[in-house]
Design a protein around this nucleic acid. Sequence first.
DNA 1: TAGATTGTTAATCGATTAACAATC
DNA 2: TAGATTGTTAATCGATTAACAATC
Lengths: 229, 229
Amino acid sequence: MTAQAAKPVPEPTLKRLPLYHRLLKELLAAGRPTVSCTEIGAGLALDPTQVRKDLEAAGVAGRPRIGYAVTDVVDQLEQFLGWKKVNEAFLVGAGSLGSALLGYRKFEECGLKIVAAFDADPARVGRRIHGTHVLALPKLPGLARRMHVLIGIITVPAEAAQGVADLLVEGGIRAIWNFAPVRLHLPEGIIVHNEDLYCSLAALSQKLAAALAAEPARRSRTPAATPAA
Amino acid sequence: MTAQAAKPVPEPTLKRLPLYHRLLKELLAAGRPTVSCTEIGAGLALDPTQVRKDLEAAGVAGRPRIGYAVTDVVDQLEQFLGWKKVNEAFLVGAGSLGSALLGYRKFEECGLKIVAAFDADPARVGRRIHGTHVLALPKLPGLARRMHVLIGIITVPAEAAQGVADLLVEGGIRAIWNFAPVRLHLPEGIIVHNEDLYCSLAALSQKLAAALAAEPARRSRTPAATPAA
DNA sequence: TAGATTGTTAATCGATTAACAATC
DNA sequence: TAGATTGTTAATCGATTAACAATC
């Protein structure tokens, strides 16, 4: 039988899988042999049916009446998420956010190894941050090709992001994790994930504003509801 | 007429609004008086109808045949997103990520002003990071109440996050921007936004793995498709 | 006037939730 | 066996996209 194009797993599911992985790792450490969807759902405030569907999408099977074998789930999730083999990545922009990410050693457990950092600022080039060398930006495309690096992480200011993205593409990179607050223009086939903090913040503050507007009494600093004594 | 509960704006829409704001700010700077949805959509790779619906949800009106007045849209979006009046926030966890966020001065343009940072580590307490004082964690609840701070930002390690969240709730905080890779257990009515980098990363690397699997020929370092010369 | 563009209603699509059968 | 839990199919819900009428 030919390798049929596997039906893509919905993005929301993809983002929940690490939550299951984390929870089940804890259960594993606690020595628990099995779990039910109900229990997983209770721990993460998710619908049990949704948990079941998500696990099914990741190729995990359980047994009626018994539940899921904890070791199995952990193992299969790591398999499915591609955490078994580590992808090498370049990080561009050795500023404060970039440095913070370089310190996240747990990324390696999630299949991501940042092997080099790049920066346009000569003052930063040549340094090491959390053990990772900072190289000059123009070296990126050549090195990326030579090392077959497939993932690029962008942590430069907004204005510089598109230029960096072009360099990454030139270097044959296939996936970009973009922390700069811009939408990148990229050729077909390049995978992008925008981590746009301003967009998240907007959602948060708008919801807060809406919630406060819904309860006007408690809003003002001098409580208007209680008449002065 | 009574203040009817405004129908909540869908989350996806909320997250797109800042994109419009950004683009229109540029057009404003360029002196453009009006824009059409089609043009906005083209600039952001979004469906024109979606743009129209989003703007409508934010209370922006256009004029048939003319389009939207750029100044109007910018203004109304800022109004709707609550960027006109600044919310004060506490940041907890003055590590590398926390420090990076303290340096993001643009947050203030988006209605967020981080007025103090907190840390459990005595070595960090008393310092200033990008001009913001780092205070001792136990002072948080009292100060939050006294200053009527409503937003908390969590940038501590996973293990510490729930404890920090409890302190924030004790301080009367209403919205939490959580960067720690944990699901927090919170009372009803508290707004949370999880910025879980591991979940984003998982989605990215799984997609990359799937894409690579779909084109096996180009995968290996020694191209198998071309027979040896 | 004619035509472009918004406003608005309907159709489609996808994800979540519910229902129920299969099974250990 | 009985009952809990998975597997799987159907119903619901919400967001996106399409269609078309209103209007400047």
